[in-house]
Design a protein around this nucleic acid. Structure first.
Length: 431
DNA sequence: CAAACACTCTGGGGTTCAAAC
DNA sequence: GTTTGAACCCCAGAATGTTTG
């Protein structure tokens, strides 16, 4: 185990990712290293331990009676298979106690699924192909950052739906559905029924949303959808809004052969005219080269209470990664809010600012929400060391929408720091 | 050599479920 | 019955090394 710790230390001390790969390659035959990386970085193995809960354990202060029989892998298997509880937390303490600090820290990092050496599944899989299971779907980039990508090219505009991403297919007649992160979605009998009409080994990619029986606004429908999607057991009234299609083998290889335009045509022909109750096609709103149409359709979408639109380049193939051949077009809002608190960050932000808590006004009342995204490293350091620069000041921040929660409260969804301190005013305002 | 890409890290609101209180 | 912790939906954005044109 000491040898492994030295290898990880070497990785920590190396900035170059090519060098990290070289270090791992030099140890390719080290089965223990391979096993440790597998247990640490496999996204489907969950140990339900966080830094906070580990800190609470205070290993050396509380001596637990008993000795853990087994190694770290036995412990991790035990945690992975069961729901976490105080008995299992006690088992973790039992395992860690008595071991020297170096070893304890290493085992803790394993349990936290992060060896803190800036590597992840992608880097590990460059050395051991397929060791860490990965699941990738095509992801869009932001239109505002890549507007030049569509100039002079033909594109297809569709509605952007605010629900939960899902890919689904049938293999040997068996229906399977997965979220964006590769979590299997169960309890979809209604959608499965419609798959009688879909041949085997064809992947449908889309967004599931609750059927909008109550004519909810987009953000309320999103919340209602999440309630249904995230609960166990049979899910009801979910509609699979499909926007893409490709053969299963091409999806698994990570790239389609056909262009977006051809795929949308095939999708239309497959779904059109069939009596489907829980699968619908996301239909093109516009096909052409006129970029003015994008803004026009975005405005329409916002007027209709929708999230925005997607711009798909007509000749682009499907790729299982983030790409600039699909662009999302959304409108963000800004507000002047008051900074009332600051919280220290974690990990590389320890000793620096993590987030600010701000006060905003909504429906005639004051609410608070956290803003943690958008700060540069320098800002995090400066504001943490000199809090008076921000505390009690009015700042302009961005957000997508005001979200409501089950307790009747409100917050900012996708709130971001914009580096704007309003020294000219001391009033909160939304605009 | 600059620009684009790839990869990793950290931050948010909100929901469910199970365990703890 | 209520609160808390963990996982996972939705993400945004910064930083930095690597590859491309």
């Amino acid at each position: 185990m000491n040898q492994i710790i030295n290898i990880i230390k070497a990785l920590q001390g190396e900035n170059s990712t090519n060098e990290k790969v070289a270090i791992l390659k030099a140890n390719k035959d080290n089965e223990l290293l391979k096993k440790i990386l597998y247990y640490t970085y496999n996204p489907y193995m969950k140990y339900k331990i966080t830094e906070k809960s580990l800190d609470k354990m205070q290993i050396d202060d509380v001596i637990i009676k008993g000795i853990y029989i087994g190694d770290i892998f036995n412990l991790m298997d035990e945690l992975n298979k069961n729901n976490i509880n105080d008995y299992l937390r006690g088992r973790v303490q039992m395992f860690l106690q008595g071991k020297d600090k170096k070893l304890q820290d290493f085992y803790k990092m394993m349990l936290l699924k992060d060896l803190r050496c800036n590597i992840s599944a992608k880097t590990i899989n460059k050395v051991w192909k397929g060791l860490i299971p990965q699941f990738n779907v095509m992801l869009a980039s932001k239109y505002w950052d890549s507007m030049d990508r569509v100039e002079g090219k033909e594109f297809i505009v569709t509605t952007k739906l605010d629900g939960s991403r899902m890919v689904a297919w049938k293999e040997s007649g068996i229906f399977k559905a997965f979220t964006r992160q590769g979590q299997e979605v169960l309890g979809l009998a209604e959608i499965e029924e419609d798959f009688i009409n879909i041949p085997d080994n064809i992947v449908l990619d889309g967004e599931i949303l609750l059927r909008n029986d109550n004519d909810l606004e987009s953000k309320d429908l999103y919340r209602a959808t999440m309630k249904e999607v995230r609960k166990d057991g049979e899910k009801h009234s979910l509609i699979f809004n499909v926007f893409d299609i490709l053969p299963l083998n091409e999806f698994q290889e990570g790239k389609s052969k056909l262009s977006c335009k051809d795929r949308k045509k095939i999708l239309h022909n497959l779904l059109n005219g069939k009596d489907l109750k829980h699968i619908i096609e996301v239909k093109p709103l516009y096909v052409g080269k006129d970029t003015n149409k994008i803004i026009e359709l975005l405005d329409n979408a916002i007027t209709n209470g929708e999230e925005g639109v997607m711009v798909n380049l007509s000749d682009a193939v499907y790729e299982c990664k983030r790409t600039k051949t699909i662009l999302k077009v959304k409108k963000f809002n800004e507000a002047d809010v008051k900074v009332i608190d600051m919280t220290e960050g974690t990990g590389k932000n320890k000793g620096k600012l993590g987030m600010i808590t701000v006060q905003f006004e909504h429906k005639g009342k004051l609410w608070t929400t956290g803003i943690g995204s958008g700060f540069s490293d320098n800002e995090r350091e400066l504001y943490w060391n000199q809090p008076d620069i921000l505390l009690n000041k009015i700042v302009t921040v961005g957000y997508f929408e005001i979200s409501s929660n089950a307790n009747g409260g409100y917050g900012f969804r996708f709130g971001t720091w914009k580096s704007i301190i309003r020294d000219d005013k001391d009033e909160i305002s939304m605009y």
